[in-house]
Design a protein around this nucleic acid. Structure first.
Lengths: 211, 211
DNA sequence: CCCAGTCGAGACGCAACCGTTCCGACTCGT
DNA sequence: ACGAGTCGGAACGGTTGCGTCTCGACTGGG
């Protein structure tokens, strides 16, 4: 009596790499898990965490809901697991040898992320969600924020060691200056941005650091 | 047959100021509308726009859903109306006569807003929601963002006129520098903040403006 | 070669909201 | 004094998502 008279022969995950799967651990080996992860991020960008429906994730992934519940116990655990996985491997703060080069590289990395459509929607959404979901905030802070903030702090410390910045540099304010203005422009007010914007911003930031 | 055997005598809006009510226009005169508006912001802070339920707003306001639908046609219209109303009257950029005084006053105003619990949750949420709701974004941009950005631009222009900043100041970057670092710290990474933070930040910002 | 485990798919009961509509109580302007 | 309009409250049918459970199909390791 179901409405689908001809349930097609169930296209069987064509090639399955030998990836193991862990309940709760970061997993993205087999094709089903990869499809679920991709669908998760697309749905997260489209609907936001608050409205994210695992039903929609499963449908978009071409998977059953059971395939999701077999891997994660809740939306929160799934989010922390998947977001942390992609956030940690996307941390490549190059050491260019000069403060200006490091700052420019750092800003380019941030700008690149915030210009891609999925992160541009997901990041502000998770930040907002963290304000009302302490468990999510704590998990993402320790896996994402602290990691990236430490990377940026290293950048500053290298400049201090080189003598490019004063030893009594206010690290806290400098970190805010590094990310804040660019995040504000790209993710909050969405102002159009000139090609040499990062260059000009870099000059201003270095002047602020040295003040 | 209703479950409430004694529908209490319906406490009748004790004093009703002669406020008019407009469908779609900014309204907050009579006590029912004020109660709905207050409940709306509390629910918005607690649940976020995406999960905001008008049923919950009505219940929290001690009102019927019909009282809401009689005033606004949709959640979006209600949000734009109420948020714009409180956002425009909260724009008091004082003219202190010096760049440093103006910047400090501006930062204090931002910090004050972002430290109160309701705006601290609502603002990031609406920003994230704007990323996936173009209609909401367009409305809030024109009523809130542009207004406040113009106020900040006046602050900078006064400093240029006074000769405190160069005439070729990059206004766009300066506006990002004004708000970005403080927003980043207070609303995104939630770093603890020293009492003299705004003073120190002001010095850095002015140095950046002049670079 | 077979059996345990996963696969996609979907039905299940349950809960929350939606937007509308009706109700009886009350208030205000005239 | 009366009618128009709003009040809080609750019901309506409809939709969506939850988390669980059951199918038959498929597959890989022993």
């Amino acid at each position: 009596m179901p409405s689908t008279p001809a349930p097609q022969p169930s296209p069987p995950a064509p090639d399955r790499p030998p990836g193991r799967r862990l309940p709760g651990g970061p997993v993205l080996q087999d094709s089903v898990t990869a499809a679920i992860a991709a669908a998760f991020f697309e749905e997260l960008a489209a609907a936001g965490y608050a409205r994210l429906s695992l039903e929609a994730v499963a449908k978009r992934a071409g998977a059953g809901k059971a395939a999701i519940y077999r891997r994660w116990t809740s939306k929160l655990e799934m989010t922390v697991d998947l977001v942390s996985a992609v956030a940690v491997d996307a941390s490549g703060t190059a050491d260019t040898g000069t403060l200006r080069g490091d700052v420019l590289a750092f800003l380019s990395e941030v700008a690149d992320a915030l210009c891609r459509p999925l992160p541009a929607r997901i990041i502000p959404d998770l930040i907002a969600e963290g304000g009302r979901n302490p468990e999510l905030a704590a998990a993402l802070f320790s896996t994402v924020r602290d990691t990236r903030r430490a990377k940026a702090a290293e950048l500053l410390e290298r400049a201090v060691d080189r003598g490019e910045l004063p030893a009594d540099l206010d690290r806290g304010i400098a970190l805010d200056l590094l990310v804040g203005p660019l995040y504000w422009r790209l993710a909050v007010v969405h102002t159009p941005t000139a090609p040499d914007h990062l260059d000009r911003l870099t000059d201003k930031l270095i002047a602020a650091f040295r003040a």
